[in-house]
């Protein structure tokens, strides 16, 4: 069936950018289909904002997550990928957990009173965009001062930096078998960043946006 974003209470900050494309419900939010990868395009931009994510920070965060069985990155500004789950470490005491498979969201452990662990509203504070394709590092070089060529920014790397003049977190990881950049930015800047990235992508042949899935995939 065909869905309307406005039928769902939760809405991605950039849903108008892809609302003509096939989409599927994720919880109480409509999400564009994420299958298909870059599909041979030089670069592709997708919106994963509806997918589940959360964060914890505070002095006891590391201990709490380890007790819950999470394998954590050894250092800040690294991420560990286990299946469809990304565990990103932003500082000594801050970790985010992101799920690329909406069907299997990670339940962050409950925080007992008195422990120095605080939840972060990552689902709402940040939009989640994905830039994929072989030209992704070159696209990023047009909007970001951090070297994101694979030799300098290998899969598993994380950068908290400025992208097109706004703060963002860039994660290098695998999605559906290909290396991609996830960009997490203030959800209020998401529409702006989407436009800035499209502009940076425009010089590449076959630049693509949205789901990349064939139209009948929405059936």
């Amino acid at each position: 069936m065909t869905y309307q974003a406005s039928d769902f209470p939760g809405r991605s900050p950039v849903y108008r950018r892809w609302q003509d494309q096939p989409a599927t419900p994720v919880g109480d939010t409509l999400a564009p289909l994420v299958t298909g990868g870059a599909g041979g395009a030089q670069c592709r931009l997708r919106d994963l904002s509806a997918l589940p994510r959360g964060g914890l920070r505070g002095a006891d965060t590391q201990a709490l997550l380890q007790e819950a069985g999470y394998a954590l990155p050894a250092q800040p500004n690294q991420l560990v990928q286990s299946g469809a789950t990304l565990i990103a470490r932003l500082s000594q005491t801050e970790h985010w957990v992101l799920d690329t498979d909406p069907a299997a969201p990670s339940d962050l452990p409950a925080v007992q009173a008195g422990r120095r662990v605080y939840t972060l509203p990552c689902q709402d504070s940040h939009a989640w965009l994905v830039l994929s394709g072989p030209a992704r590092a070159e696209v990023m070089a047009k909007v970001c001062g951090v070297d994101m060529r694979p030799a300098a920014f290998a899969p598993g790397a994380l950068a908290q930096t400025s992208v097109a003049l706004v703060s963002a977190i860039v994660l290098h990881h695998q999605l559906e078998g290909e290396d991609v950049f996830s960009l997490l930015c203030d959800s209020a800047y998401a529409d702006y960043l989407w436009g800035a990235l499209l502009d940076a992508m425009a010089e590449f042949d076959d630049a693509a946006i949205g789901s990349g899935a064939p139209p009948d995939a929405s059936a």
């Binding site: 800040p76 500004n77 500082s91 001062g145 951090v146 950068a159 908290q160 930096t161 400025s162």
Partner: peptide
């Protein structure tokens, strides 16, 4: 100290 060398604009 946390993020390494960056443009001073950051």
């Amino acid at each position: 100290p946390l993020n390494g060398p960056r443009n001073v604009a950051e």
